[in-house]
């Protein structure tokens, strides 16, 4: 066991993966000498060389496109996009190459690659260093989308992602990078893709969340003595439908919390899944607490991010609904 934050957990896991598998190559902007702007790849170029930890030119579509080409030749590419906000020039590569290669080659060409990128607000990053674009990727068949909310899951999900035969978008909630240190086992373990966690059990209501909102929800539940079932989805595509539905049936009251904008966000899909499968168990409408449908503001970001007050407002509405 070692006590570490999420950056340390990711860094030591990448180190461990690279030491055990020569076919793994990391590439991205400033990930080598500089160790990445968040230091997730610190020290890896010094240890594994410039050929395996590549400082690339400044071109997101090239980083993703090269990773696809490498993976086709049997290299396991782990590209980093410095901020998820900068990923859009690579969107064509992600949607039309990365996500469709297996399908369009009849299963002949596969892409076991993991695209890592920090996402979300809370670091005073303004419009272009704060976005939560997970729904764009979760809307795309052929991709797997995961997001850890603590150092333990970060390690277990990263190992599972690298071992996955499918291309994975690995979203790192940057606000949590150094938010907490917890015990992380030194040995290998896996957090299964497609499996939600239930960090708190309760009977009165269900709160479904993921990523950077998990600690916010857990603190709110503790502080207000809620008897809540909290689900941390961990995988956004494919979501753990069984965990979602069984909890909704148990409590009959559901609040969904995410930082991304409301319209067509993950909450919309979660709400639809519950409506289709468990509507007769519900005592109240399913409510969403999300970022507003505006670009991410710099100075006023605290008003943008869902917090205790907004979560409790929704919880009260759901609990008091008659």
């Amino acid at each position: 066991m070692s006590t570490m934050n999420m950056v340390q957990a990711l860094n030591s896991t990448l180190d461990h993966i690279m030491s055990g598998d020569n076919s793994v190559i990391l590439l991205g902007e400033d990930i080598g000498k500089d160790g990445g702007v968040f230091r997730v790849t610190e020290g890896l170029q010094a240890k594994y060389g410039e050929e395996r930890v590549i400082d690339t030119p400044l071109v997101e579509l090239g980083i993703v496109g090269m990773s696809v080409g490498m993976s086709l030749m049997g290299v396991k590419a782990i590209p980093e996009i410095q901020f998820q906000d900068f990923i859009y020039t690579a969107f064509d590569q992600i949607i039309n190459q990365m996500a469709k290669m297996r399908y369009r080659s009849g299963g002949g060409f596969t892409l076991p690659m993991v695209l890592r990128t920090p996402y979300g607000g809370g670091i005073k990053g303004g419009l272009y260093h704060s976005q939560s674009g997970e729904a764009y990727f979760a809307h795309t068949a052929g991709l797997v989308v995961v997001t850890p909310s603590n150092p333990y899951d970060a390690k277990g999900l990263l190992i599972s992602s690298v071992e996955s035969p499918d291309p994975v978008i690995f979203l790192e909630p940057k606000r949590l990078y150094r938010a907490a240190k917890i015990e992380v086992p030194d040995e290998d373990y896996r957090v299964k893709i497609g499996e939600a966690a239930r960090p708190m059990e309760g009977d009165d209501l269900t709160i479904i969340t993921y990523g950077a909102m998990v600690p916010t929800v857990l603190n709110t539940v503790k502080k207000n003595n809620l008897n809540a079932d909290v689900l941390d989805l961990r995988t956004l595509l494919p979501m753990d439908v069984n965990a979602i539905i069984s909890s909704a049936k148990k409590t009959g009251r559901v609040v969904i919390v995410h930082e991304a904008p409301r319209t067509l966000g993950m909450g919309a899909e979660i709400s639809a899944l519950i409506s289709e499968r468990a509507i007769e168990y519900l005592y109240a409408p399913i409510l969403r607490v999300t970022g507003p449908d505006i670009p991410f503001p710099y100075r006023l970001e605290d008003y943008y991010m869902p917090g205790e007050a907004r979560i409790m407002k929704a919880v009260k509405r759901v609990m008091e609904f008659r």
């Binding site: 050929e51 579509l61 090239g62 090269m66 080409g69 993976s71 086709l72 030749m73 290299v75």
Partner: peptide, 17 residues
């Protein structure tokens, strides 16, 4: 042209191998 960056990555991997 989305095949072009793939060719570059493939060449990188093959040289690495």
């Amino acid at each position: 042209a989305t095949n072009l960056p793939l060719a570059v990555g493939a060449a990188y991997a093959l040289r690495y191998q």
